[in-house]
Design a protein around this nucleic acid. Structure first.
Lengths: 347, 347
DNA sequence: ACTGTACCTGAAAGCGCATTCAGAAAGCGC
DNA sequence: GCGCTTTCTGAATGCGCTTTCAGGTACAGT
């Protein structure tokens, strides 16, 4: 079986004994075509298993309805949930989604944007924090700007606004502050934070909001109570383990991400301590699985799917030339069993 | 700022004062081009922020290095893990991945295959069980076959082999049987199964392997001890809740999927029972989070990322015309704390 | 019956690029 | 200096499709 060239519209037209133009019009319904001709065309297309060549269509001017989505890691539940929202809206609008995973490699992100540009995707969505790197930002802009000038739509989720594009942002700062106040109300006075890389805005905002709210209540969060680690389950596990090794003094630990909190929870258990008996633990995001943990995790619920949906909606609604839009979505503190008032001081 | 047409190769050529052909050759390095001309071309391309139009390139005959991946739901950790493997291999080979989510809608799967065909993707990967539906299978074949004849590569993961294509399959039957034997060794004699839709081969295999291994040991699994439900966390939760409402007689429950087991675990806890004290619980897949549950879940570990990697590798290696290849990957029983010998009969 | 209009159809142009083909320039031996 | 090969360049072709543009046919109005 040799690879045989694809069936083309011309083949269909010939089989249906009409002109190429008529076949095109019949198939796309762009213009009225005499009924019997139309039927012949459809029959021929069916018989030959014809599929139009999207490249030729795109080249000939038809809009091509595919959007590119770039995220750090599809297998991270946070991105998976957002991607779910993106795909739902895309699917409802007949858009094909090209999803790419950078695995947190800045170079890869740029390469993907470039490829998507080449594909003339009608929109590009960037999901997740950017990197604190001037050179990288410039290189990314160098891809984004010509793309937008060429009519491409761009939207970002949860990212610093160094790019002048539409964006949807979770209210990280406010959410973390609200969480802090809730934990203060429970009686905690001594906190520790499991932070991701400080270069990421998400981390800066959540950490900042948390610390500021604490400060307002006269509680100080010392630098030594902040452990920086990777933005993953293992990162959370490592950070918590380190905190415990140092001799934990906090009664409540805030992991800036649920995924990190999951690792932290296991670390606590491995140390023979209990949550919330020995230490309270709170996360951020409310990814689906945290309510099934034991204990269920106190966290700040973000409308993750909605984040994706709104971004996709922004990308669909044409916004060339207008000032860039910002959609902010609030988080909501969800108190579950992983946090409780601290045990009274032993002495 | 009006949408301005894209910068084309012709623009670059004109700016560099060379012919279009020379510009093309310089950029692609297909032929030697005099050094100074080449430099002028690159400089012009840079200056104009030129990006080749992938559609035109594809149409003009250049191979276009994009693969399509279709799965049921990106936000399901099972697929996310597989997708991760796929993307890694794709990225390493300079392939762009278009990931689509069908949300378990058979029609959507066909639509996506059709779109991918139209895009002339160099390969299509179908991930996850197919549907037991003759008409659907025929419709899918009607898309797949012409695609393959046209030179497209196809590979499937974890799917019934009704399509004559390369596939990689986890050893569901053997894995479930091994799990059953392990549980028998722990002393269990009365089991219940939380099954997904019986139309899915995955379910049939896992259930079958489990039941057969039980039967070999003289333990029968009654139909009434099998609860069918959706293939999701909530499905597992509902099934377990129903089982408990009926009056649980099993000492050990096997959820055919970790995701379902997670829901089941919470259902047990909500009923005021303990795992494994009151009932043992086992899952299948070993998605990352289950080791962080309390208790950590006994399950059959599947090399999920590898499943994706191998599938992508199959799709990359040209296999037109040859007999379809099958890669089988074994699972491994991982005993964790969610299963334990049953409590002695009360009386 | 004849012109005018509405409606379709088919030939042809062109989207942006890779590539073939022919020709120009350059290098070589004699 | 002449004819030869070698190397590189540019004009032109075609990938498969959509879309003008210029007819062609049918029908109504007068």
């Amino acid at each position: 079986m040799e690879a045989r060239p694809h069936v083309t519209l011309e083949d269909v037209a010939r089989a249906a004994e009409v002109s190429l133009a008529t076949a095109s019009r019949a198939l796309n319904g762009t213009t009225k075509v005499r009924a019997d001709l139309r039927d012949r065309v459809f029959a021929a297309a069916e018989r030959l298993a014809y599929t139009p060549n999207a490249h030729a269509q795109a080249l000939a001017g038809a809009s091509h309805r595919t959007v590119g989505v770039i995220c750090h890691d599809v297998s991270d539940p946070y991105f998976a949930a957002i991607a779910r929202g993106v795909m739902r809206v895309a699917g409802d609008n007949g858009l094909l989604v090209m999803l790419a995973s950078t695995f947190r490699d800045p170079q890869k992100e740029i390469a993907y944007v470039s490829t998507l540009r080449a594909q003339r995707a009608s929109a590009i969505l960037l999901i997740g924090s950017g990197f604190e790197d001037r050179a990288w930002e410039r290189a990314l802009s160098a891809e984004i700007e010509p793309y937008r000038r060429g009519g491409g739509q761009v939207a970002v989720v949860s990212r610093h606004r160094s790019l002048r594009v539409d964006c949807v942002q979770p209210e990280n700062r406010e959410g973390a502050a609200a969480l802090a106040r809730t934990l203060l109300e429970q009686g905690h006075r001594r906190f520790a934070v499991l932070a991701g890389p400080r270069a990421l805005t998400t981390v800066v905002d959540r950490l900042g909001g948390f610390r500021d709210a604490l400060a307002e209540a006269g509680v100080e969060l010392a630098e030594e109570d902040i452990v920086e680690s990777a933005f993953t389950r293992d990162g959370g596990h490592a950070a918590m383990t380190e905190l415990l090794a140092r001799g934990l003094r906090a009664t409540c630990v805030f992991a800036v991400t649920d995924v990190m909190a999951i690792g932290a929870l296991t670390a606590v258990r491995e140390a023979g301590l209990r949550v919330p008996g020995d230490v309270s633990l709170a996360g951020f995001d409310d990814i689906p699985v945290v309510r099934d943990l034991t204990p269920p995790l106190t966290t700040v619920a973000l409308p993750l799917e909605e984040l994706g949906e709104r971004a996709m909606e922004l990308a669909i609604r044409d916004n060339r030339g207008k000032r860039s839009r910002v959609v902010r979505l609030p988080g909501e503190v969800v108190v579950r069993a992983s946090t409780a008032p601290p045990a009274p001081e032993p002495e």
